[in-house]
């Protein structure tokens, strides 16, 4: 069985599964696909009222609303991707026990709805950015490779944890809790400067998290160079550690998944 993403049969199957997932996701709702845009906007509205208006977290940051929106959109993408990915193998168990096809297709197709959603949401972010008076610039193009990095990280985690989750269903729950904790450990709702003012070291350690680094990088390139990025805070060596972590997680996960996936049908 080949592991190639570009095999013709695999591409067709992936396309069919993605199409089905997307078609079914919003079925039976009046607003349908619109929910892909409305939901994150409403979530953002709640955070905005609480943190920008009531707690006044963003007074020091220019364009704080877009800043907040960008952070939540990227964070939602990461959580949606991993949560769908981790449970994908167990959810498609019925299929895997009856038909032989490359198992990674299941994980990739489960995460693809999140990819479609984040692309739609980024369009919304860009509209808001323009409304907020940020001038378009070439640095906006950097968003795409950064988004790719975030996806590779999420896919790596999904491949690894989905194969462990088959035997130990605890993994899915642990991950949910971990994500809740991580939400506060990533500067999404509060600016990173709030942390660095009290402790530089804590700020540096926080930025080792690839998700935090990517969110700050996107903000810097999209909204304002005043963003404190991991690179500025701790230098290129620390910065490369988190990029390297993404690469290592991905490679290890792919190898692990490839090895385990032969036995998925029996273990499910």
């Amino acid at each position: 069985m080949s592991f190639s993403l570009f095999g013709k049969k695999n591409r067709i199957l992936l396309k069919e599964l993605v199409k089905t997932d997307f078609k079914l996701r919003y079925q039976g709702s009046v607003l349908g696909y619109m929910w892909a845009v409305i939901k994150p906007l409403l979530m953002f509205a709640i955070l905005y009222v609480v943190f920008a208006k009531v707690l006044r977290f963003g007074d020091a940051i220019p364009h704080y609303p877009v800043y907040l929106l960008t952070g939540t959109v990227l964070w939602n993408f990461f959580t949606e991707c991993t949560q769908q990915g981790i449970h994908s193998i167990e959810q498609r168990g019925e299929l895997l026990r009856k038909i032989s096809f490359p198992k990674y297709i299941v994980v990739v197709s489960a995460t693809s709805t999140a990819v479609i959603n984040v692309l739609i949401n980024l369009c919304v972010v860009i509209v808001f950015t323009l409304i907020n008076g940020v001038m378009p610039s070439l640095s906006w193009l950097m968003i795409l490779p950064l988004l790719l990095e975030l996806y590779i990280f999420a896919l790596g985690i999904s491949l690894l944890l989905s194969s462990i989750n088959i035997k130990y269903r605890d993994v899915g729950n642990i991950w949910d809790v971990l994500m809740q904790a991580m939400f506060y450990a990533v500067p999404i709702i509060y600016p990173l400067s709030m942390v660095t003012e009290t402790s530089m070291l804590v700020g540096k350690i926080m930025m080792l998290n690839p998700v935090a680094q990517i969110i700050q990088d996107v903000r810097e390139n999209l909204i304002t160079p005043a963003t404190i990025t991991g690179w500025e805070l701790s230098g290129p060596v620390w910065g490369l550690i988190s990029v390297g972590a993404v690469a290592i997680v991905f490679v290890v996960s792919v190898l692990f998944f490839k090895k385990r996936s032969k036995y998925f049908a029996e273990e499910l």
């Binding site: 013709k8 069919e16 599964l17 089905t20 079914l24 038909i99």
Partner: peptide, 20 residues
């Protein structure tokens, strides 16, 4: 999938079996 039409199911089933 019960939520898909007969036609869509035929094509999905076909893709799973490896047909283009």
């Amino acid at each position: 999938n019960p939520e898909l039409t007969g036609r869509e199911n035929v094509y999905l089933n076909g893709a799973l079996l490896g047909f283009s």
